[in-house]
Every structure is written in C-alpha cells, then in structure tokens.
C-alpha cells in the first residue's frame, strides 16, 4: 500500500523541480515530476494516490487554476503550494479551496518534508475511510428489502414490538429479521450498526 504513494510535483522551473524531487527522494519518497499543468493532468486520474506539490506561478495554467481543475475532476489528493513571493490573497484563496499548506520560498526544508509526509498520511487515511465505507455499502447491498426496512427502524431506535406494529407482522418475525441484519452487517451491538449506517 505504502509504495503506491507518489508525490506529484508540478513546477515550470526545471532546476527547482529537480531540487524538489531530489530533496524528497533523499528521504525515501517516490516522486513524479511534471513541468506543466497540462502534462500533470494528462497522467493523473481518480485512482491516483499520494499528494501534489504545486508551484503557484506557472505559464499557461497557474497553480490556482490547476487546483480548481483537479477538484473539478474529483481527484482527492492533498495539495501543497509553493510560491516564489509572498502573496497573501493568493494564499488565502488556495487555502479556502482546500490546499493543505502554502510555502513561501525559500522555506525550511524540514517543514516542507514533514508537510509532505503529513499529506501522504491524510491521503492514506481518507483512502482507508473510503474503503471502509465501500465495504459497509457492500454489506447493505446483501440485505433484503424487508431487512433494510427493519434496519431503518432499528437505527431510528424503535423496539421490536413497535416495529412489528408498524409493519403488521409478528414480533417473532421481527426478531428473526433483526438477527439476520446484525449478522449480515457484521455488527456486534446496535450501537455499531447505527455507526455504520451513519457513515454511509
């Protein structure tokens, strides 16, 4: 899993690009370098994992524009910005749009490295969350229509007798369904079940 994490670096200055890659690689990270926004967009997709390091000032498409394009394509990688000169409004906009950090050159290399590692962690975590949500969704899909109905009432806090009344079936039958729901959803307690349903 870890080896798939790549730091995507986009900078139009080849020297700075090379130095950034060298710095990150020296700490054992895997990098991919791009000298323009376009070449980056052409090689990334929704399944990419890792994080992105963007230069703010680039010809043709600036870092900020690239950021909104990345969001438009629903690529959920954390973005770290690097800028040549302090531009407060630009930084504010980038952060508002969900950038993880905004570094002004020249910056402390260790802070930058830490931030990149942090970004990779965040990406991993959200990936884990995503996987978890997917597996819960798969479990829900195995429920029958009646079981889904019963689960709905259960998570709303109704007791067996009330559910039986509402559905005009016997409490015994409700009990059977409840047991099936708990089993299929792999939930040990009602609290766990509610938690799962909330997450989806």
């Amino acid at each position: 899993m870890e080896s798939k994490n790549i730091v995507y670096i986009v900078d139009d200055d080849p020297d700075v690009l090379d130095a950034t890659c060298m710095l990150l690689e020296s700490t054992g990270l895997e990098t991919q370098r791009f000298n323009s926004a376009m070449s980056f967009l052409n090689s990334i997709n929704q399944n990419s994992q890792g994080c992105i390091v963007l230069d703010v000032r680039m010809p043709n498409m600036s870092g900020l524009k690239l950021q909104s394009e990345i969001m438009r394509r629903e690529i959920c990688l954390p973005i770290i910005f690097i800028t040549g000169h302090g531009d407060v409004p630009m930084a504010v906009e980038a952060m508002k749009n969900g950038a993880l950090e905004f570094f002004q050159k020249p910056f402390r290399d260790q802070e930058f490295i830490d931030c990149v590692y942090g970004a990779l962690d965040i990406n991993q975590q959200s990936l884990n969350n995503l996987n978890r949500v997917h597996s819960i969704q798969r479990r829900i899909a195995t429920l029958t229509k009646r079981e889904q109905q019963i689960m709905q009432y259960m998570t709303e806090g109704h007791i067996t007798k009330v559910i039986a009344d509402k559905l005009a079936i016997s409490p015994r039958t409700v009990e059977t369904h409840r047991a099936r729901v708990m089993e299929k959803m792999q939930a040990k307690t009602l609290a766990q079940l509610i938690h799962m349903v909330m997450e989806t």
């Binding site: 130095a19 040549g84 000169h85 020249p106 290399d109």
Partner: peptide, 25 residues
C-alpha cells in the same frame, strides 16, 4: 524588485533543497 526577488528565489530555493537533500543522503 519583486520580480528580481522571484528570480533570485528560484536558484536559492533549489540550492537550499539540494543541500538538505545531501544532508539526508
């Protein structure tokens, strides 16, 4: 001077990152 700062910033950041990289190596 802002433009100049940017121009000078580029090689300076590169130097800084290379140096830190060497340290890591």
């Amino acid at each position: 001077s802002a433009g100049l700062a940017h121009e000078l910033n580029q090689p300076l950041s590169a130097i800084s990152m290379y140096a830190q990289g060497c340290h890591n190596l």
